[in-house]
Amino acid sequence: MYAIIEVGYLIATLSFLGGLKFMSSPKKAKTGNLIAAMGMVLAVVLTFVAALTATVPYTNLIIMLLAIAIGTVIGKRLSDKVEMTGMPQLVSLFNATGGGCAMLLGLMEANQMDPATTILGNKILLIAGLITGAVALTGSIIAEQKLAGKVKDRRSKTVIFSARILLGLMLVLPVLYFFGIIPISFIAFMYVLATIAMIYGVLFVLPIGGADMPVVISLLNSITGIATAFAGFVYGNKAMIAGGIFVGAAGILLTLLMCKAMNRSLLKVLAGTFKKSKNGAV
């Protein structure tokens, strides 16, 4: 049974790879999409099959099945209704859901595990997954709002400065925590980090111009992929690691390609030097 599931995950991983490969040529793109989708369904079904051999409370199963049913229907509805021009927004929104899922995963795992027995490596992975997921969540939502024209650019020094401070905090706080300088429980610490990361996601996207949103969405997309890979590491699930890393690597490459197509460097897109570079480009 165990072997069958492992082989199934392997097939799912290969299907993601094949899907991405096919998607980079216009003729085969549709097939690629289908292959990747089938691989995904396979991976999800396998996870359930693996569970059925263990004892799982009915409540959990019912909640999950309901959530999956509702999620599928809403996803289909949203993608059927959207106008052609609104697609980038929707992609950004879906990316936000992926990031949100990664963030919640980190919180749940922190709620459940025993901080005393969990090894440091897993805690670091959990924190990394939580932060990347939270940034992708709020960042993508802001990107979506910007594309829809509901949020204007805010390029004030305060925003940029506080974004840098928060970024620094996210890097420094875990180090301080593991040296035992911050005397709070691991769970409380995770909630604090999630909050900081969510605020950072907002501040990170706010100063970036609306025209650069596709680049940012691609970048956030790759961040979600990396969050997925971190989570996959925690559970030792190869399909998750592979899927996440493929998306992460492909996303970063795609981001760079898009920047190249616009004749701007990624740093210029992201940094506060937007105004100068805009004048320079025009």
Partner: peptide, 8 residues
């Protein structure tokens, strides 16, 4: 498509 795959 990559976004969908990260839904794993």
């Amino acid at each position: 498509g990559a976004n969908a795959i990260s839904g794993v």
